[in-house]
Design a protein around this nucleic acid. Structure first.
Lengths: 213, 213
DNA sequence: ACCTGAACACCGTTCAAGT
DNA sequence: ACCTGAACACCGTTCAAGT
């Protein structure tokens, strides 16, 4: 207040030398670009420019573009896990909760298609897979395993290896999500949600005719 | 035979002006690069060079790189349909044939991971989807629908909308294939095949406990 | 420690020009 | 009709240099 408004506090100066938490800013900017304009549109020059930073400043915080994408993917798996746990807990940790998880999974993917693709695509970029990305992906998968163990305890799911059942369920929602994202379902969102509901029901009883039919 | 061997038939001259069927040659070269070194390694300059042709010759036959990739994807869907039909017909068009189709699907994807990715990824490249690619993809999907209709007739599958059942089954094998390709299953091929077998069985009877359990 | 700016080796695409 | 070769506007990455 005592200063003339020509010299603002440092946090307002866009041309200052050090950039608070540049790594975090770069990551958020990358996520924003991917969300709004797709992964193809993500360029290191572009994110640097929006942050008012040189295009090579990024290399102080990420070894290369693949590492940046791995961080984006990691962030996505964290969000996905949160959505799955919310759905499970807010719908009674039973059959309804299980269906809600499936819907939440597919909705997350369709609401963040480019981000979702990076989550699974960036594991193969770079020679060795980013261990932190793998860790976060395991966390999301574990949310599914945990739910299945509860369903098994309540005799709603066969008592087989929960990891195997979880992989099966994961493949189904991942398959639906990817088909929808890639435009293989006619009316993307509506068909994906209908298919998810159908899948949850047929997952329970199978596609063989009912015994009394 | 009457000509001296210094002047061979035109088809043997590698430096001739016109290139028999350049479009076909470009497509095959692109498939070869994608198979052996991945989609990232596919450059128009590269395929031109291996064919001894300028890098812009390609634009006489494809509107751009996305169109070339769409043609690659189209070719892949044709091969996939052939594999599915083979498996179905050679295993008795029944329950065994259905499982064989599932295995054939996943094996095709794991044997041609980059090609498989292009098949599904190139639908979103380009603003309007290549109609020939869509057509070929529908053909592969139809092989699955046809099999399900037979299974329904023989009372091995519920008599619901076969398109819906087919989408469900497709999502499962696609999900397994994508997870395996992206390195989300520990031992890629072994886990994918085990999971496929498991899926076919649980697909039949569901994951709910058996009625007499 | 952190960032810059020029340079390098790549891309896809276009277009006037050749045959 | 079909292809060439130079040019253009982009990339990611490196590295000596600045503060």
């Amino acid at each position: 207040m005592t200063q003339p408004h020509a010299t603002r506090p440092a946090r307002k100066r866009p041309d200052r030398y050090h950039h608070g938490d540049l790594r975090r800013a770069l990551l958020q900017a990358a996520v924003r670009v991917i969300q709004s304009r797709g992964t193809e549109a993500l360029t290191l020059r572009g994110v640097g420019e929006t942050l008012g930073v040189s295009r090579s400043a990024l290399y102080r915080h990420f070894t290369d573009k693949a590492a940046l994408l791995a961080a984006v993917g990691q962030e996505g798996f964290g969000e996905l896990r949160a959505r799955l746990q919310e759905a499970w807990e807010q719908h009674g940790r039973g059959r309804a909760g299980f269906e809600a998880m499936g819907m939440a999974y597919v909705r997350f993917a369709l609401s963040n298609p480019s981000h979702y693709r990076v989550m699974f695509g960036s594991t193969r970029l770079g020679d060795l897979r980013d261990p932190e990305l793998v860790e976060e992906a395991s966390g999301a998968f574990q949310a599914l395993v945990d739910a299945l163990v509860v369903l098994q305890r309540d005799r709603l799911v066969r008592r087989e290896d929960p990891l195997q059942v979880a992989r099966f369920v994961w493949a189904i929602v991942h398959g639906i999500a990817m088909l929808a994202i890639d435009g293989q379902l006619e009316r993307q969102r509506a068909d994906a949600e209908m298919l998810t509901r159908y899948a949850v029901e047929r997952l329970r009883t199978g596609i063989a005719p009912a015994p009394d039919a």
